[in-house]
Write a protein that binds this DNA or RNA. Structure first.
Length: 187
DNA sequence: CGGGTTTGACCAGCGC
DNA sequence: GCGCTGGTCAAACCCG
């Protein structure tokens, strides 16, 4: 934890986003680079459109580049590879911040399960799963190929448990996260 | 020895 | 159909 200045816990199940220590080094973290994404089904916490509007309208450097991967989620699997179904949607949250370190210590335990070189980027993308049993939250970590001082971390899913390291804060409704938090905390 | 990391392989989706 | 790309698995490996 001491290697990373932010105690950011993006889990919408707790209120860390509103906690005073959510951002402890504002000079390194531009909240307008702090992205919320949802799935396209419209039934989610935040639809993709809501995300684009609420974030890109204020600045949104990634508004034209929302999390680019296919929005599918595991339902069943064949040999070695999961099959996906868009019907099952999960929330997704993306952060973009300046850091020399690529691993954001967010209070959860993550197990790395893959590393992949991605097109149009000299930097690999790393894949992590929450190592807590029964928790299917994943995150992807990659460097911004346009500005390697930035690290892009994308969380997918919602933890079904509390952070083992971060105290629980007051509950907040997920619907309140995006614009409200952005504007209140804008630097 | 248990848990995490590395890395090659596998598969699905997509564009052509 | 084919090739490319992204996401995941899992065996081997590493480390405390």
């Amino acid at each position: 934890m001491e290697n990373f200045p932010y105690n950011s816990n993006p889990n919408p199940n707790n209120g860390d986003i509103y906690s005073s220590n959510f951002i402890s080094t504002p000079e390194n973290f531009d909240l307008s680079d702090y992205l919320f994404t949802g799935e396209g089904s419209g039934d989610d916490f935040w639809s993709q459109n809501e995300f684009v509007q609420s974030v890109s309208s204020s600045r949104g450097s990634y508004s034209n580049n929302p999390t680019p991967t296919s929005d599918h989620h595991d339902i069943k699997r064949t040999k070695g590879v999961k099959k996906y179904n868009k019907v099952e949607a999960k929330s997704r949250v993306a952060f973009r911040f300046i850091s020399e370190l690529e691993v954001l210590d967010d209070g959860f335990k993550w197990r790395k399960y893959g590393k992949k070189m991605v097109k149009n980027s000299p930097y690999p993308r790393n894949y992590y799963k929450c190592s807590s049993g029964g928790c299917n939250v994943k995150k992807r970590v990659e460097r911004d190929n346009e500005d390697s001082s930035y690290v892009i971390t994308t969380y997918e899913g919602i933890h079904n448990h509390e952070s083992p390291f971060v105290p629980h804060y007051t509950h907040f409704p997920p619907n309140n996260i995006p614009t409200h938090g952005l504007h209140n905390l804008h630097l």
